[in-house]
């Protein structure tokens, strides 16, 4: 238990009454400092929910979330958010449509009452490879990849040590995806960041992550190393099926898929 992030027996219930969902069941994992941890699995299996619980967006979880050795309770101080930031899936929905890039980037600085606003915004834009001439644009004047860069800049401007990435490239085309993945890799090395990355693209996860957890129906069914993914070497049936399906579409195989 020496990780920067330690999750122990995490359970999340969402919704009320008969529509309550046990979205995350007894999930435990640990991420070391500077490591990149991948989360894959069935659609609706609770990956985003795990990230949201860690990030403080869902308050009603049970179990332990330790970050940097500190137990996270349900009520978080402002400092918590400074250390840990999240990048959302949809670059078209995650920027306020009526705020310029400048406003978007200065908002976290104001919330955390940081000084040197001007300098921080300039460096943040530089770091994600956007020139200063993007500073006063509105989101509708940016392409998908540029938006995702702004979203990453917004997360990085607080100089967090942990980034939670919820499908950061699934809405982007392959060349922009390559740009964003390169950027994330550079930032990780430069600032010794820790990532948790959710993605459906096993190639992306294998490219980015050292450790990968596979989720199904709210549970982690298997932990894999990069090496195991490379060799398609999994023990659980669900994971085997997932790895096989990632090879491409096959009508006959589709008919034989099992539900887990």
């Amino acid at each position: 238990m020496a990780g920067i992030i330690d999750i122990h027996n995490l359970d999340v219930h969402l919704g009320r009454g008969k529509d309550a969902v046990h979205a995350v069941r007894n999930v435990s994992f640990s991420v070391k400092k500077g490591e990149s941890f991948g989360l894959v699995g069935e659609s609706g299996s609770g990956k985003s929910t795990v990230l949201r619980a860690i990030s403080g967006l869902y308050k009603n979880f049970t179990g332990k979330i330790n970050i940097d050795g500190k137990v996270q309770n349900q009520h978080k101080g402002v400092d918590f958010y400074k250390n840990l930031q999240m990048v959302f899936q949809d670059p078209y929905a995650s920027l306020h449509p009526r705020h310029t890039v400048d406003q978007t980037l200065s908002e976290p600085l104001q919330i955390h009452k940081l000084d040197q606003v001007e300098k921080r915004i300039r460096t943040a834009l530089e770091r994600v490879g956007l020139g200063l001439n993007f500073r006063f644009r509105y989101p509708h004047q940016l392409s998908g990849g540029q938006r995702q860069r702004v979203a990453i800049a917004r997360a990085m401007i607080l100089e967090p040590r942990i980034l939670l990435l919820d499908e950061p490239t699934s809405a982007l085309d392959v060349s922009v995806q390559a740009e964003v993945l390169n950027l994330l890799t550079e930032l990780r090395i430069e600032y010794n960041l820790t990532y948790i990355l959710v993605s459906h693209d096993l190639a992306v996860v294998a490219y980015m992550c050292e450790q990968i957890a596979v989720m199904n129906q709210g549970q982690i069914v298997e932990n894999l190393s990069k090496d195991q993914i490379m060799k398609s070497n999994a023990t659980e049936r669900y994971t085997q099926q997932l790895l096989a399906a990632s090879k491409g579409y096959d009508r006959d195989a589709a008919g034989k898929l099992l539900q887990f």
Partner: peptide, 16 residues
């Protein structure tokens, strides 16, 4: 674009 590979395959099979 937001589906995991197994569900994606099943959906594509329906369309197919």
């Amino acid at each position: 674009s937001a589906l995991d590979v197994t569900v994606q395959m099943q959906i594509l099979a329906i369309i197919d």
